[in-house]
Nucleic acid binder design. Structure first.
Lengths: 148, 148
DNA sequence: CTAAAACCTCATGTATACTTGAGGTCAATA
DNA sequence: TATTGACCTCAAGTATACATGAGGTTTTAG
């Protein structure tokens, strides 16, 4: 135990994620482990930072697929502060986009609360429907939120 | 066709959602339909407003379960402007919460981009792990985003 | 050394929100 | 009337992100 590596249970306790989640992240290639003679996982302490990053990104609504693509730049190497700075600034941009789109939606809601107009042709929230008389999707105002 | 009801295909075209989605919403109790002698769905025009509301709410990140609970107040009756006003102001509140939490996360990211501190004990983004030496979950800084 | 706690793999289950496909019926049009 | 497009139901599939349980092995503590 004093070999300064962490078992999966240690990591679970210290990072606050379940053991099954760590298994899952490993299976998906977001983290890696060394194995003992008896095939048990052992982690370097830097795993904690990695898991922290994953959780933060998840909280920001970033999918594991995207998170993985960012982390792949340093599969084994420790994530350095500058690595982290780059990632976090990219995620900041995603967050900003997300915040912007929610804010716009909220503002549209606001204007519609004011006018109670949902039945009117020109309601900015309702545009999609009656606009297209018969054919083709056309420009969709309420487009799917691409979850990526 | 001139009986001013809409078939499922009509609704799909005008609302921009797939027929299978309308079936799904009906199965889940978010919308209702009348049936012809031959068991085909027919909708009143007000279905378009209802579907629009569902899409707007979904875009705001509200689950179908929650949306349904709001819509249940008027299962058959048309959704009036004042119904809509109430719903949208409730959703506005949810949106605001969501925006706030993302904004806070972004700001934390910002401060960490500045200090590159992910390895430091007092990083606001990293608190959860090393804080708990051995036992118990304790106060979690990075708590799960409750998707409801 | 031995028993309990911790681990391992692999399969299956859960929830959300749909889509696709099979096999068959209904309705509008030429 | 006949055909074709639109519909119907029900089962199963898809993607994401894990959790759970079975059956068996490894580690650690006393």
């Amino acid at each position: 135990m004093m070999d300064n590596t962490l078992s999966v249970g240690d990591v679970a306790r210290r990072s606050g994620v379940a053991v099954s989640t760590l298994h899952y992240y490993e299976e998906k290639g977001l983290i890696q482990s060394l194995r003992t003679q008896g095939n048990q996982r052992r982690y370097h302490r830097s795993i904690l930072r990695r898991v922290a990053i994953i959780r933060i990104a998840k909280q920001a609504g970033i999918s594991l697929r995207i998170i993985k693509s960012h982390l792949e730049k340093f599969p084994t190497r420790e994530v350095s502060p500058s690595d982290w700075q780059q990632m976090s600034s990219e995620w900041r941009a995603m967050l900003n986009e997300r915040i912007l789109s929610l804010t716009q939606l909220r503002d549209k809601l606001d204007s519609c609360i004011g006018c109670g107009c949902l039945s009117l042709r020109d309601c900015p929230l309702r545009n999609p429907e009656d606009k297209l008389g018969e054919e083709g999707p056309g420009a969709r105002l309420l487009e799917e939120e691409k979850q990526n």
